[in-house]
C-alpha cells in the first residue's frame, strides 16, 4: 500500500543567532502550550502565535487536536490566572519581522516564506499517534 508522503507546510523559526539548530515537536509543543517558558539552552522563550488561518494548521499538525481544543485549553489556563497564551501577530510577514528582531522569539510561518534571515528549528510534520 502506498503511504501518502508526509508534507510539511509549516516551519518553526527562531532568530538567526539562536545557538541551537533544531527542536523536537514535543519541545515546540511545550513552548507553545505554555508548559515551559525556556529553551533547552536555558534562555527565555517568547512564542509568537498567528491570527491567520495557518494557526489552525499549525496546532492540528503539531498536537493532532483541532484548534477548538487548543482554545478550550487556553481558556482554562488563562481564566484561572496561570499563564497567558502566546501573543498573536496577523501574518507571516509580521512574525518574520519580530523573529528577526528578537533573539528569544520563536514563531511559525508557511514553509515557502523561509529565507536566510532566520533559522528553521522544525518542519512540522502531520501528527501521528
Amino acid at each position: 500500500m502506498a503511504m501518502p508522503v508526509a508534507q510539511a507546510d509549516v516551519a518553526v523559526i527562531a532568530h538567526i543567532k539562536s545557538n541551537f539548530s533544531s527542536l523536537t515537536a514535543k519541545q515546540v509543543q511545550d513552548i507553545f502550550m505554555g508548559r515551559t517558558r525556556i529553551f533547552p539552552n536555558g534562555k527565555f522563550a517568547l512564542p509568537i502565535d498567528q491570527s491567520s488561518p495557518l494557526r489552525a494548521e499549525f496546532y492540528e499538525e503539531l498536537t493532532g487536536r483541532p484548534v477548538e481544543q487548543i482554545n478550550a485549553y487556553w481558556a482554562r489556563i488563562m481564566f484561572t490566572g496561570q499563564a497567558s497564551p502566546p501573543q498573536r501577530l496577523p501574518d507571516d510577514e509580521a512574525v518574520l519581522q519580530t523573529v528577526r528582531e528578537n533573539e528569544g522569539a520563536i514563531g511559525y510561518i508557511d514553509k515557502t516564506r523561509v529565507d536566510g534571515t532566520i533559522r528553521v528549528l522544525l518542519l512540522v510534520q502531520p501528527w501521528k499517534p
Partner: peptide
C-alpha cells in the same frame, strides 16, 4: 520559570473544575 507565588483574590482550587466553573467553553 517553574515557581508561581500569587496573592490577592484567588480561585478555590479544591476540585478539578472548581477554579473555572464559570468558563463553560473550557469544559
Amino acid at each position: 520559570d517553574n515557581l508561581d507565588i500569587r496573592a490577592g483574590r484567588l480561585g478555590f482550587d479544591t476540585f478539578m473544575l472548581s477554579e473555572y466553573r464559570n468558563v463553560g467553553y473550557a469544559y
